[in-house]
């Protein structure tokens, strides 16, 4: 049985269906990215996984337990970092640590926080407030806060969307390294095809909304460990990249209109794409 099972998930607002028949699984230690155009309901799916939102239909089982409401078992990195501006970087992380281990004393909390600050490369900026940090540093604090509670699963909502390309590359490398070291299970929203190929084991492709669904699940043929500087030399790289870009510019609309896929049959089974051959 898979670690996370999403079965026949749907979200409707009145007569409008944002997405329906969303079905996928995530294995323990797997890194899954979800790509789709704005309005297809990616963030809603992530919020449902986090327990912050409720689905209109469908079930969600993580580690043999149904997901009902938010929990310390799932750490969330928010799109807008969501750091508390009146706390320092260290205190923001400590806030999460104290929530996870309320009985810890000050020294235990401090030691644990320092470890995370060092891990995301913020040593020296512990006592700065968010307003004094750059966008990249703020997002690092957000990542450290999510990792700090040692969640069973990490949910990232387009965490690097607002960063410049250079900073984004550095933080991607760090996230890759940390996830490989900790064998963290990750579900991440992204708009960036290259980011998905670099980080993900599998990539979920969502058709356009309304009435969106997970149309294809692409298995990343490039073996780990992957390196940002040499990944484009891999013989599979351009086939995967072209497949993903083609989906975004072309097939995402055709899935929505019913031209592709098996619309009308519930639950829809996403086409599994293996580009190894």
């Amino acid at each position: 049985m898979s670690f996370l099972q999403v079965q026949d998930l749907a979200k409707r607002y009145g007569a409008t269906t944002v997405f329906e028949r969303v079905d996928f699984t995530i294995e323990r230690g797997e890194f899954v990215c979800i790509i789709g155009h704005s309005g297809c309901g990616k963030t809603t799916i992530l919020n449902i996984l986090a327990g912050l939102d409720t689905p209109s239909a469908g079930t969600l089982i993580m580690d043999n337990r149904e997901v009902a409401g938010p929990s310390l078992e799932r750490g969330v990195v928010f799109q807008g970092h969501a750091l508390m501006p009146w706390l320092t970087a260290m205190s923001n992380i400590a806030f999460a640590v104290r929530s996870r281990w309320p009985h810890w004393n000050r020294i235990q909390v401090q030691t644990h926080c320092q470890k995370l600050i060092d891990m995301v490369g913020l040593t020296g900026a512990e006592h700065k407030r968010p307003a004094e940090l750059s966008g990249g540093m703020k997002q690092r604090v957000g990542i450290a806060r999510a990792f700090a509670i040692q969640p069973k699963m990490l949910l990232l909502d387009e965490p690097f969307g607002a960063l410049d390309a250079l900073t984004r590359g550095t933080i991607q490398d760090e996230l890759l390294r940390i996830c490989e070291a900790t064998r963290q299970t990750v579900f991440m929203i992204t708009h960036d095809v290259d980011e998905a190929i670099l980080l993900a084991d599998r990539i979920l492709l969502m058709s356009n909304g309304p009435n969106a669904c997970v149309a294809e699940i692409v298995e990343n043929p490039i073996p780990k460990p992957r390196d940002r500087h040499s990944i484009h030399h891999n013989p599979h790289y351009y086939r995967v990249r072209n497949h993903l870009v083609d989906f975004l510019v072309n097939r995402s609309k055709r899935y929505q209109s019913g031209e592709l896929g098996n619309r009308g049959q519930a639950p829809i089974s996403a086409k599994i794409v293996n580009l190894r051959h």
């Binding site: 912050l52 938010p70 929990s71 310390l72 750490g75 969330v76 928010f78 969501a82």
Partner: peptide, 8 residues
């Protein structure tokens, strides 16, 4: 939302 996910 942060406080909710942290079960504060």
């Amino acid at each position: 939302d942060v406080t909710r996910t942290l079960e504060v």
